[in-house]
Design a protein around this nucleic acid. Structure first.
Length: 307
RNA sequence: GGCGCCGUGGCCAAGUGGUAAGGCGGCAGACUGCAAAUCUGCUAUUCGUCAGUUCGAUUCUGACCGGCGCCU
């Protein structure tokens, strides 16, 4: 195996990443390492578009079904485990290809996160409980004094900045700066990204994808999950599941649910495109549109270039 | 045919005689341990059409067009 470069295939949902990856993996005896924050969870199968049993029999997959639906997962944990899976793939004599749409996970693997200060778990849980009731506006005000550079971000980030400042007495923005300075002379460019996208065709593909899930028995899966998984489990955050729950529980008719799931998925895909457009090092990115007649050649060239 | 109600951006929808709330959708963006998450910005020179009253109308009057309801 090549060893030097790590290949990462990413892009918005519905672009056809896995088809590209499957073809590549079977042609080059590679293993697929899923970078997908929802396929992590067991039992949430249909709505997260996990690879089929046939696909998994054909190509080894890592990173799927590795957590219980109620577990809180994280980019940091994924990055650690992903390094393990890369080793596992090597043990099988296979090259790893990372494939997925969770930008932050990919980034955590490519550019390791700063090491977070250890804080007392009990104090943290206590603080979290207090902060939970606060509005975004309030959290923002706090953050403005505790860690100003982070104050423009969303609730999740605000919470973390405030917690770190209060519990560890450090600003995340400072920690980032130190971390970046420390690894500035590290060799970069060991990663080759293939961003799979198909612009205008994405909307139609997402619609078909949702219809496929519905036909595959998504509603039944959700009915079963409602029985077995607590309603606040993180796994429920996968797009469409909350809507499907409303439908299964009789609060939303099927056609409205379908329509809204499609919209939700489209909005997610849009956020992903923004991420991949701006958060990856441009020099390391190759863009393909599978719709394009040159697509095959581009993909092959991308693979060979990173050998 | 008569009577009544209604006609505001892609959709839903508030509103006032003084120059158009909000929501949805859409677009753009942010993003370093919950990321299929979370958050930010933008998105009607214009209120069915025409005419009238008025300093000024989307808001008042009339006609017409369109929709809905009821009656004959």
């Amino acid at each position: 195996m090549a060893g030097d470069k790590l290949r990462i295939i990413c892009g918005p949902t519905g672009a056809g990443k896995s088809a590209v990856a499957m073809e590549l993996a079977s042609a080059h005896n590679a293993a697929i390492l899923s970078a997908d924050s929802r396929q992590i969870y067991r039992r949430f199968d249909i709505g997260t578009a996990k690879p089929t049993h046939d696909e998994r029999a054909l190509v080894s997959h890592f990173g799927i079904d590795v957590a219980e639906p109620a577990e809180r997962y994280s980019a940091a944990r994924w990055a650690v485990e992903a390094r393990g899976w890369i080793g596992d793939a090597a043990d099988l004599g296979k090259e790893p290809v990372v494939v997925g749409g969770t930008g932050l996970y990919i980034k955590a693997l490519a550019e390791p996160l700063f090491s977070a200060p250890q804080v007392d778990a009990a104090r943290r849980a206590q603080l979290e409980r207090e902060l939970e009731a606060k509005s975004v506006a309030d959290l923002r005000k706090w953050c403005e004094v505790l860690d100003p550079p982070r104050a423009h971000l969303g609730r999740t980030q605000l919470l973390r900045a405030v917690e770190t400042a209060l519990l560890a007495g450090e600003r995340i923005s400072d920690l980032h700066a130190e971390h970046n300075a420390a690894r500035s002379n590290e060799a970069s460019g060991r990663i080759a990204y293939l961003v799979v996208d198909r612009a205008a065709q994405l909307g139609g593909r997402i619609e078909a994808r949702v219809d496929g899930m519905l036909e595959a028995g998504w509603a039944d899966e959700v009915r079963e999950l409602i029985r077995a998984v607590p309603p606040d489990a993180p796994a429920w955050k996968a797009s469409g599941y909350a809507l499907m729950r409303e439908h299964v529980e009789g609060r939303l008719d099927l056609s409205t649910a379908r329509q809204r799931v499609i919209i939700e998925t489209r909005q997610y895909a849009k956020r992903q495109r923004t991420w991949f457009r701006h958060q990856l090092p441009p020099a390391a990115v190759t863009l393909v549109n599978p719709e394009d007649s040159q697509a095959r050649a581009v993909v092959r060239e991308w693979w060979e270039r990173s050998e």
